[in-house]
């Protein structure tokens, strides 16, 4: 029983990170109908931003988290304007090739600039853990988890209550009619892309404190993020949050209780992806 609680806690904590990545991806898809294969690379760049701010300016990740988010949102804006926008009208194959190519370019640029060595940010809270009874809770991961929850709630409020949020939802539901409302959809695309890459940057920054950053770190995450996005229903922010949680805990349970589970845990996301695509292509939470 003690072990079981620990396992669920582990899974829950990791799901916050999953949500940060997956929600950005699903938002971009929902609004723009573009699958951003370079999403993991934005995360990687966010990690390096935090890392270099730490190494060069001794800036604590708690502060540089926000800088990384802003930097990556800005980079997202540029990428959206210069690269994604021109192919928005093109076939989805072109869009996939573009974002996929971008991912590979970013990986290679990172490899050239920073080599393929693993880097991470060492702070007192990186490996510090709280003891709650018999359960150990990593301080950094707990922080990331709460940050993710707060951000998701904030994003929920923005989408629900603000004019910009309503604009984003309108564009995702019916871009043509949205234009008839006087909505500048290019602006909406830019906002969605910037929010998405900003969240990815934040996820990368968080990752650099509890794990490692390297040029292909995004590849590891993006596959799970896709599974989560499909699982939660393409474009659904709430679905992605719930799917992150379910996936995180399931992986943790499988990893701990299935014999030889270390390999199986990684397969959970793919199994989920395949099953959902076969049986519930609109995601499990769709009505």
């Amino acid at each position: 029983m003690e072990n079981f609680i620990q396992v669920v806690v582990n899974g829950t904590l990791i799901s916050g990170l999953y949500a940060l990545i997956a929600v950005g991806l699903t938002l971009i898809f929902g609004v723009m109908r573009v699958i951003n294969f370079a999403h993991g690379e934005f995360m990687m760049l966010g990690g390096y931003t935090t890392y270099w701010l730490f190494v060069l300016l001794r800036l604590d990740p708690l502060l540089s988290l926000l800088i990384s988010m802003v930097v990556l949102a800005g980079l997202g804006l540029i990428v959206q304007r210069c690269l994604i926008n021109p192919v928005l009208g093109a076939s989805s194959l072109n869009q996939i090739l573009l974002t996929f190519g971008l991912a590979i370019i970013l990986q290679n640029v990172a490899m050239i600039l920073w080599t393929s060595d693993y880097v991470s940010v060492q702070t007192w809270y990186s490996t510090h853990s709280l003891r709650v009874g018999f359960v150990r809770i990593s301080v950094a991961k707990l922080g990331i988890f709460f940050m993710a929850i707060i951000l998701m709630m904030l994003l929920g409020i923005i989408l629900k209550k603000t004019e910009t949020g309503k604009v984003l939802r309108a564009v995702s539901q019916d871009p043509q009619t949205a234009q008839l409302m006087g909505i500048d959809i290019n602006r909406a695309y830019m906002i969605a892309f910037a929010i998405g890459t900003g969240l990815a940057g934040l996820a990368g920054a968080a990752t650099s404190t509890v794990m490692s950053i390297f040029p292909t770190v995004g590849v590891e995450f993006i596959m799970k993020a896709f599974a989560i996005v499909v699982f939660g229903g393409l474009g659904s922010v709430a679905g992605a949050c719930l799917a992150s949680f379910i996936l995180g805990v399931t992986e943790s349970l499988v990893g701990t209780y299935v014999p030889g589970g270390g390999g199986w845990a990684e397969a959970v996301s793919f199994t989920v992806l395949i099953l959902v695509l076969i049986f519930r292509p609109k995601g499990i939470f769709s009505s």
């Binding site: 590891e220 992986e251 990893g255 701990t256 845990a265």
Partner: peptide, 20 residues
């Protein structure tokens, strides 16, 4: 005697299992 996938970003399940 436990396999794991290299490059995973969470080994907590493995450690929890060994700790048990």
């Amino acid at each position: 005697f436990e396999p794991f996938k290299s490059g995973s970003f969470d080994y907590a399940p493995l450690i929890t299992k060994l700790k048990a």
